[in-house]
Design a protein around this nucleic acid. Structure first.
Lengths: 257, 257
DNA sequence: GTAATTATCGTCATGTTGACAATAAAGCGA
DNA sequence: TCGCTTTATTGTCAACATGACGATAATTAC
């Protein structure tokens, strides 16, 4: 054991505020073979050694939250420039969620196309994609309160698809309507009518842009390739403007008077 | 100046994680005289002494975030049991948002009926309601990054009204359709057609419940008093189930085959 | 070539919306 | 008491969106 000492200079009239270790965790979701998958690491140290957990780690001095999330994700997957859309999900704690003491964690959500995770060395925590279903079914157990964070992430992802163009964050740069539909089906856990989905996706102004190219080589009729329209592209870390969904009661002004 | 020393016992093989002071801030919104107001305090200490700021303060040992937000709000308004709906908004920092050093803040959002703020003693920070418009217009300047947090809170509040029954969180237990409409108008900054709003509000299943009572004494025809239906009542701190809004593309399954 | 597969377009009944007319039920002032 | 004003509530209608599903197009598989 080592004794580590912090010095903190404060005006004597005010008590020193409590300081907390802060971690970032990332719920990285992707759609693989039509099924939703989440990126998990196998913990190599206590607590929860050997248990699956969300990738993440401590925020370092001088870092912002999003930076820390990007760094941790890069470290644990070996992927330099990560694809997809990253946003903050919410904060948990600090009370009673880590047996080592009070740790605040800021969870993040990454919606990404299926990217390959690089093998870590033998002494590094190995990240890999796991079917979300296996976690929900209890086949896989997560460390800490990560199951709850995953639940919240899934809820957020579902509603993001309803109200924003972020379904496309699961796709590559160019994609077909069917690929996009399979994202919706995987995240929502439903089957959707291909014809109505096509009408809706192509008919929503400011959502998709036809690239003019087509798929080749697949079974069946070739499909047109689309990309996200410029105005629908998410700014990393920024709240996404809803483009897809005119909801029921909308801020629509009546003639003032 | 006093030197405060922390001791932290850690396994020598791992470096001590950075620790950050963590604050909670609350964006408390209400509708007063048809206009959106936000609760602000006048800072009595540096930094930003004399400047307006969101109510908030440091998270204490053994506290959870929501607890801390409730405690700070109670301390700064003198209100014991706070009305309305409180939820987490998001976290900011820790880099470069406080001149004293890196401080992480977890912002919260309170949607509440117009409650009176108790006068603080002369040496306490005085909380009061201010028109949101004055902040947006630049007539009032906020400390730290609180203007940005307020922006995010307003965005969140607007979308909450679209997708959830939380507009009623601004009203008293029982309210008229016109009172509810004035909430929507204030938050969205628009005027809405009273007849269509009435149809929509009363016609949405699981939203409102007729109390059978009527208003008396106001000008014009008396209005029926409603309350939130049981299934639409928010659980404090819990994500709210959207009741109001069937959005355009919804998880609706097609006959599986 | 024929079948199977997938993509895309079209049709139609139903439901929701926005605009706005009409009516109901109170207070107010003459 | 009788209009007049004010606000609440009901109703109507055209335009549009949705869900269900038929039909057609353009490929690959055999």
């Amino acid at each position: 054991m080592t004794i580590i000492t912090y010095y903190c200079f404060m005006p004597a009239s005010h008590p020193a505020p409590e300081r907390f270790p802060v971690t970032v965790d990332v719920v990285a979701l992707t759609v693989r073979d039509g099924e939703l998958h989440v990126l998990l690491i196998t913990r190599l140290i206590e607590p929860f050694r050997g248990r699956l957990a969300l990738p993440g780690g401590f925020v370092l001095a001088g870092e912002d939250l999003l930076e820390a999330a990007v760094r941790e994700l890069a470290e644990e997957t070996g992927v330099e420039h990560l694809p997809g859309h990253l946003e903050q999900l919410g904060s948990y704690g600090p009370k009673g969620r880590d047996p080592r003491g009070d740790v605040l964690t800021v969870a993040h959500l990454l919606l990404a196309p299926d990217f390959p995770v690089l093998s870590a060395g033998s002494d590094a925590e190995q990240a890999a994609w796991y079917p979300v279903r296996d976690v929900l079914d209890g086949k896989l157990e997560l460390a800490f309160d990560h199951a709850r964070i995953l639940d919240d992430a899934l809820e957020r992802a579902k509603s993001k698809l309803e109200y924003s163009p972020l379904g496309a964050a699961f796709c590559d740069e160019e994609f077909t309507i069917a690929q996009l539909r399979s994202v919706y089906e995987a995240v929502w856990g439903t089957r959707l009518d291909a014809r109505n989905f096509h009408r809706k996706a192509t008919g929503t102004p400011g959502f998709l842009e036809d690239t003019g190219r087509m798929t080749t080589g697949d079974a069946g009729r070739p499909a047109a390739l689309f990309r996200l329209a410029l105005e629908a592209r998410p700014t990393p870390g920024q709240p996404t403007r809803a483009v897809l969904n005119p909801p029921l009661m909308r801020p629509r002004a009546v003639d003032p008077r």
